[in-house]
């Protein structure tokens, strides 16, 4: 029971959490396979991370430290409200520091800082089925997964090249897990794809679509491509204007009515940490506690 005694720990009842944990364990046992689960109505709209929230609720213990990021940022509405939600319903410690967190719920990014074996990364997934846009029938896509018929996935990439001259898919870039299941990595930028072979456990929750899937630590994750158009985890060709980093995923920000742009790290915690260490970009000011 939480501080005000109105909710069970982490909002969901214990039976529901058990059900979700079973789905998570099955997902870990069959990496990349979409496990159906009985998604609950959550006190937030679909699209706000109901799947991720349910997975987080099933993972959290009272000793955990929780972090939420939305497009890399800890301070956007979505991140703040989910963090608050678990502060109130689970009374867990929260943090914005990637390295301090034991459970990190994310929307559309993987933190820049490498994660460790004692961390769990929970993704919010809007559409878990990578084949969906080309094959609308669920019965058919399930069969295609079961029989490893993944030619269609390459049709999508083919269409990209035919239309744009290169594989223009820049987020939700499909991957093949352990040489078996083709998986949608959620709408993370393709820049983050190589990071998915990591030490932490990765869990994916799709609330509206009622699917959970997972990657155990150090799972092989290969981005699909063509021999003559290999996968390229590109990003904007700039340095972070605040911390000067050249190896991070950047957000493009228009700063005035003349269209002047600045590029900044999308991972706010990473950028702040670098600035605290003394790195400064072209538009950055030396770090002070309130400058972030």
């Amino acid at each position: 029971m939480t501080q005000n005694g109105q909710y069970n720990f982490a909002y969901l009842d214990e039976q529901t959490k058990r059900m979700i944990r079973r789905a998570i364990l099955k997902g870990l046992a069959v990496p990349g396979y979409q496990v159906p689960f009985a998604s609950r109505e959550m006190p937030m709209p679909y699209g706000w991370g109901t799947g991720g929230v349910q997975v987080s609720a099933a993972c959290l213990t009272a000793d955990d430290t929780f972090k939420v990021i939305d497009q890399g940022a800890d301070d956007t509405t979505n991140a703040v409200s989910i963090r608050k939600f678990f502060e109130r319903t689970a009374d867990v410690a929260v943090t914005e520091r990637t390295s301090d967190a034991s459970v990190i719920q994310t929307r559309h990014r993987i933190p820049e800082e490498p994660l460790s074996e004692d961390q769990i990364l929970v993704y919010q997934v809007p559409i878990p089925e990578p084949l969906r846009f080309l094959e609308p029938r669920e019965t058919e896509t399930r069969k295609m997964h079961a029989l490893e018929e993944y030619g269609l996935m390459h049709v999508k990439l083919y269409e990209d090249i035919a239309r744009h001259g290169n594989i223009a898919t820049s987020y939700a870039y499909p991957v093949k897990v352990e040489g078996r299941y083709v998986m949608d990595p959620s709408p993370i930028p393709k820049f983050d794809n190589p990071k998915m072979e990591m030490a932490a456990i990765q869990l994916f929750g799709a609330g509206r679509e009622q699917r959970i899937y997972a990657l155990p630590p150090y799972t092989q994750v290969v981005s699909l491509d063509f021999e003559d158009h290999p996968f390229d985890p590109s990003k904007a060709d700039h340095l972070c204007a605040l911390c000067g980093a050249e190896h991070t995923y950047l957000d493009e920000v228009i700063v005035d009515d003349d269209g002047t742009r600045m590029y900044v790290c999308s991972d706010t915690d990473y950028c702040a940490t670098r600035r605290a260490e003394g790195h400064t970009g072209t538009m950055g000011t030396p770090f002070t506690e309130d400058a972030a």
Binding site: G151, V155, Y158, E159, F226
Partner: peptide, 20 residues
């Protein structure tokens, strides 16, 4: 929703062709 080339290429990709 797929181009003519993609339609023709699908069967090739389905049997493992990976060279665009």
């Amino acid at each position: 929703g797929v181009s003519a080339g993609g339609n023709v290429g699908e069967r090739l990709m389905a049997v493992g062709a990976r060279h665009y």
